[in-house]
């Protein structure tokens, strides 16, 4: 079986651990006699060889570049050079923002088969099949790549367990290919440390909707959130009525819960606009009296019940 090549990444010299998930994805289709090579491009690639020397990796290609800056043109030249030299059947990278910038470019230029945001890989009758989601996660799509000798895929994060265990790959040193670059790194901007209400930054949100009924009931949910160590969010009607400040509104015309791991929606029906604000949430719990509420179709756990009763009971545990 031909070689599989993983393009590992660094940012400002620090290894990006999502690359270990890409390696795991590559391993999932590596046959017994297959070969898995991992390439990493950096100013001092040797310093990163250890990070990718995990079990199952046969070779690390340490590619020395002039700097640690992310240059899409350079990454594309690297992919082209390695594809030419190694003739891999499959090239794998993490579906991170850097790969967004170079992977489709390389695939289009070089005529590769291509799929992004892939959640599973396998061979069916000798044909590579990649699975990804479609229609806003409502369907799965199995893709194949007829007539393509090289296929490039990017792997969704948090699907594969990062590859681990000690490996003993051979290390090949290489200089980055010469190429013109059209971008230049200027600097970094760290995320802002917003004080006060911070829906985008919160990792735990309890959110209330119109099920709360009237303003006098809002306070007890502020208190509940406080007891639970959560940030209180709300649906739009609650903010529209002035019961809670706009900064707490989750949704299309409000805030995006960008870093939320646990979101407890109480008395929220789950309109598409509200869901928009919840799209990055890992675990959604819905409490709603209406078993048909659409919030239940996106929630991981559901309680069909009254938000006040649940809230009152919940307080007994914190």
């Amino acid at each position: 079986m031909a070689e599989i090549l993983v393009i590992a990444e660094q940012r400002d010299g620090a290894f990006r651990s999502a690359s270990l998930e890409a390696i795991a994805a590559a391993k999932s289709v590596k046959g017994g006699d297959g070969k898995l090579a991992v390439a990493i491009v950096a100013a001092d690639p040797d310093a990163l060889v250890g990070d990718v020397s995990v079990e199952g990796v046969d070779e690390v290609i340490a590619i020395k570049a002039g700097s640690n800056d992310f240059q899409p043109d350079l990454m594309e030249a690297v992919v082209a050079a390695l594809a030419e030299a190694r003739q891999p059947a499959l090239i794998v990278a993490a579906h991170g923002v850097d790969a967004w910038s170079y992977a489709p470019v390389a695939a289009a230029k070089l005529g590769f088969g291509f799929a992004s945001d892939v959640q599973a890989l396998r061979y069916e009758d000798g044909e590579l099949v990649a699975t990804r989601a479609g229609y806003a996660e409502k369907v799965r799509v199995d893709l194949d790549f007829p007539g393509k000798e090289v296929v490039l895929v990017t792997i969704r994060t948090n699907v594969f367990d990062p590859a681990g265990g000690a490996g003993a790959p051979t290390v090949t040193a290489m200089d980055a290919p010469a190429c013109d670059v059209s971008t230049a790194h200027v600097g970094w901007k760290q995320p802002e440390d917003a004080g006060g209400i911070d829906i985008p930054g919160s990792d735990f949100i309890v959110s209330i909707g119109r099920g709360v009924g009237d303003e006098s009931k809002v306070e007890q949910f502020l208190e509940l959130a406080d007891q639970l160590g959560a940030t209180l969010g709300c649906s739009r009607p609650i903010a529209d009525n002035g019961w809670l400040p706009k900064a707490r509104q989750v949704g299309q015309s409000g805030q995006l819960a960008a870093n939320c791991r646990l979101y407890i929606a109480m008395g929220v029906s789950g309109s598409v606009q509200h869901q928009w604000g919840m799209k990055h949430v890992e675990t959604i719990v819905a409490v709603n009296t209406d078993p048909e509420a659409s919030i239940f179709s996106i929630a991981r756990y559901g309680v069909v019940g009254d938000m006040f009763e649940i809230a009152e009971e919940l307080e007994n545990h914190f």
Partner: peptide
């Protein structure tokens, strides 16, 4: 939430 500033 990190941003990279670059010229193009």
């Amino acid at each position: 939430g990190l941003e990279e500033i670059m010229t193009i």
